[in-house]
């Protein structure tokens, strides 16, 4: 029974997220167009609403080109690793509290593990394997450089990312994401206590998802297409999917850790009928996540790309000290309060 419920939840989440990714691509193209005084795709279907299907159809029908002397197996494996890892991070995100079906409480997260935050950190760092392997297996200098940059970038930002989360963990005293949300629901959101930690986290999250201004692994002016230069068709599409999926995951994580997840201030969900409360919770969560996804895109079309050495400087000389200061400050204040 538990397995069936979990399977249904997995299928629903994966389908919703993949559908959302298709429309996020359209959204991103629209946003970029509007910021550049253009209109964007509007030909396929009303207002361009069927553009994602046209894009996917094109990708599926394209030939899969494997460069000569590339390591064929790893070349095929790398995009699969990327998408698998990106999707599996969704397992511990709480989309709402619980729904009641047939008298049974079903929690609105796939796996309620007690090391949720740790699991997400592990999964998001695994994502670099897909990128590095794709760069290495393509037998192309641009891909290799992209893959190497990706791993270097990951090492520089993982530390600040982890350290900035510890502030939240110290305040809420748990690694379970659902408890972090309930703790924020009864009090103030963590952004109030952790503004510095939030800034460090969101910057590191940008680097983690390889989005501009930190998209050095694919820096198209220097590296053609970076790690996915030698990919075509749906394999390239999988990289694209995983980029957007990890964008959704990190937006969801930002919301969960710093903006109260599915909770709203001054709204008492317990007083409501549980299923109606669940719907409101899910909508709240999706809306908050959507705002951060929009910020991701907004920043992408605003800021220029960092140079490689600047990225390293920011990572090691600014972000890491800031994260440590934040950690020490939080610890000191917590100690003083106790």
């Amino acid at each position: 029974m538990i397995a069936v419920v979990a399977l249904i939840k997995i299928i629903v989440v994966v389908l919703v997220v993949l559908g959302a990714v298709a429309y996020l691509v359209l959204l991103e193209r629209k946003i970029s167009a509007y910021m550049q005084d253009r209109i964007g795709p509007n030909r396929v279907g009303p207002k361009g609403m069927f553009q994602p299907f046209a894009d996917i159809l094109k990708l599926v029908l394209k030939e899969l080109i494997v460069p000569e002397q590339a390591n064929g197996f790893v070349h095929a494996l790398a995009p699969v690793i990327s998408i698998t890892v990106a999707l599996s991070a969704l397992a511990v995100i709480p989309f709402g509290n619980y729904i009641v079906i047939g008298g049974q409480k079903i929690s609105l997260m796939i796996a309620n593990v007690n090391i949720g935050v740790l699991y997400i950190l592990a999964m998001s760092s695994l994502g670099v394997y897909g990128i590095t392997l794709s760069g290495w297996s393509s037998n192309s200098k641009y891909s290799l450089l992209g893959g190497l940059r990706s791993s270097a970038q990951m090492i520089s930002y993982e530390l600040s990312l982890g350290l900035s989360i510890i502030g939240v963990l110290m305040i809420d005293g748990t690694l379970r994401l659902d408890r972090i949300v309930t703790a924020q629901g009864s009090g103030l959101w963590n952004i109030v206590y952790q503004p510095l930690g939030f800034l460090v986290f969101i910057t590191a999250a940008f680097a983690e998802t390889n989005r501009l201004p930190f998209d050095l692994p694919e820096a198209e002016p220097e590296l053609v297409g970076g790690y996915h230069t030698e990919y075509s068709g749906m394999r390239w599409g999988l990289f694209f999917l995983s980029e957007y999926t990890s964008m959704i995951v990190s937006s969801a994580l930002i919301v969960t850790l710093y903006f109260g997840g599915w909770s709203l201030p001054y709204v008492d969900y317990a007083a409501m009928f549980p299923n109606i409360a669940a719907i409101i919770e899910i909508v709240t969560f999706l809306a908050k996540t959507g705002i951060f996804i929009f910020i991701y895109m907004w920043v992408r079309w605003t800021l220029p790309r960092f140079r490689y050495d600047q990225l390293m400087n920011v990572g090691w000389k600014i972000m890491l000290p800031l994260a440590i200061v934040n950690l020490l400050g939080t610890g000191a204040v917590l100690l003083a309060v106790k």
Binding site: Y34, M35, L303
Partner: peptide
């Protein structure tokens, strides 16, 4: 850095509501 990023972001946000150049 962050104040300047926000400054830049207000510029792009304003740009979203400018009239479009595209000719259909």
């Amino acid at each position: 850095y962050f104040p300047e990023i926000i400054h830049g972001m207000t510029i792009t946000m304003k740009a979203m509501f400018r009239p479009k150049f595209t000719r259909q």
